[in-house]
């Protein structure tokens, strides 16, 4: 086992919303940890709980009708159950988040420089002048040219890629140790996505951060993370080093996700591995394995009893499945 100090330890985390149609277990039984300076990817289809999990780790939940249990230990700070005031002491400094929709994370009627200033003044207690100088530095750091002039523009005057750079600058203002990036490049063009991903990687090294990269884009996780978590219906169904999970996944849904996505290297008219159906209704989850209604390997046991994560051969690789795929031969190097 690694002796590195864990920056983040999540144990048995569950987030349930009380909706008019009944309880919705958006996240359940989630446990994992994260090392310093590591990039962890979280993948899964729409509605699998990626955003709710990220927000729960941050301690950001709606005020009412939600129940969180389990533990999120962030650099020694227990997030679950902490008061708003206590959490404010870590937001921006220990952990910061890039939200899925860049338009909602910037205030449209406030100049971009002022938005960064505000964080620096409120969180770091800087004075006006120092904050402005630091804000301009940050804009420069995220690759915005003529930062002193751009300091005064409104978000609407920037392209999507530029806005995302500003969002990154606001997140990094307090030099957080952990950056939660929820779909940071979704909706951006590929060439702009490449710029943003390079920027994140460079900043991660420079600032010695850990990054949790949430995405449904398998190309992004494959090439930009060292470890991944695969989620289905609010639970982790497989987890391990990125290389191992791509090469030797054991859980059938992971296979469908990885092998069902088109590849640039495929010849024209490649038949894709397609599974029937669609992700389950979260208000009405099946009793056993949530994937059972779509799984061609499902047996009675799968429909009755939920499989827990168990260890695969490589340390750190776990999967939840009663009838796992056979272990693939390791290519002899």
């Amino acid at each position: 086992m690694s002796t590195e100090r864990k920056l983040l330890v999540v144990k048995d985390l569950a987030t349930t919303f009380h909706t008019p149609s009944g309880p919705l277990a958006a996240v359940g039984g989630v446990s994992f940890d994260l090392n310093q300076n590591e990039t962890l990817g979280i993948v899964g289809e729409s509605g699998s709980g990626k955003t709710v999990l990220s927000r729960t780790i941050m301690g950001l939940q709606p005020r009412n009708n939600v129940e969180v249990s389990g533990s999120v230990l962030l650099n020694g700070f227990e997030v679950v159950g902490a008061s708003e005031k206590e959490k404010r002491s870590i937001w921006g400094l220990e952990v910061a988040m890039i939200f899925q929709d860049p338009m909602t994370s910037l205030n449209p009627v406030m100049r971009i420089g002022k938005q960064i200033d505000e964080i620096l003044r409120v969180r770091l207690g800087m004075d006006r002048q120092a904050a402005k100088a630091k804000a301009i530095d940050l804009l420069d750091l995220v690759g915005i040219s003529s930062p002193a002039e751009r300091y005064n523009v409104f978000p609407g005057e920037l392209s999507g890629g530029m806005r995302q750079r500003v969002v990154i600058a606001t997140a990094l203002a307090g030099s957080p140790k952990l950056l939660m990036a929820d779909e940071p490049t979704t909706g951006l063009d590929v060439t702009i996505q490449a710029q943003i991903l390079n920027l994140l990687e460079e900043l991660k090294e420079r600032m010695q951060m850990s990054v949790v990269l949430v995405t449904h884009d398998l190309g992004v996780v494959a090439t930009r993370t060292s470890r991944i978590i695969v989620m289905y219906a609010g639970r982790i169904v497989e987890m391990g080093s990125t290389r191992e999970v791509f090469a030797r996944h054991r859980m059938p849904y992971t296979r469908a996700l990885l092998e069902g996505s088109p590849k640039v290297s495929n010849p024209s008219h490649t038949r894709l591995l397609a599974i029937p159906g669609r992700p389950p209704n979260m208000l009405n989850l099946p009793k056993g394995c949530s994937f059972a209604p779509r799984c061609s390997f499902a047996t009675d046991r799968c429909r009755e009893e939920r499989p827990e994560l168990e260890a695969a051969s490589e340390p750190g690789h776990t999967f939840a499945c009663w009838n796992p795929l056979p272990v693939k031969e390791r290519a002899s190097a």
């Binding site: 710029q195 390079n198 398998l218 190309g219 494959a222 090439t223 990125t242 640039v264 290297s265």
Partner: peptide, 24 residues
Amino acid sequence: KFLLGAALEADPDSPIHGDVLSGE
């Protein structure tokens, strides 16, 4: 060439972005 170079293959062994197109 830049456009294709920016496309990420869902394969950890595939090369990461080569030359990245700058600007917009």
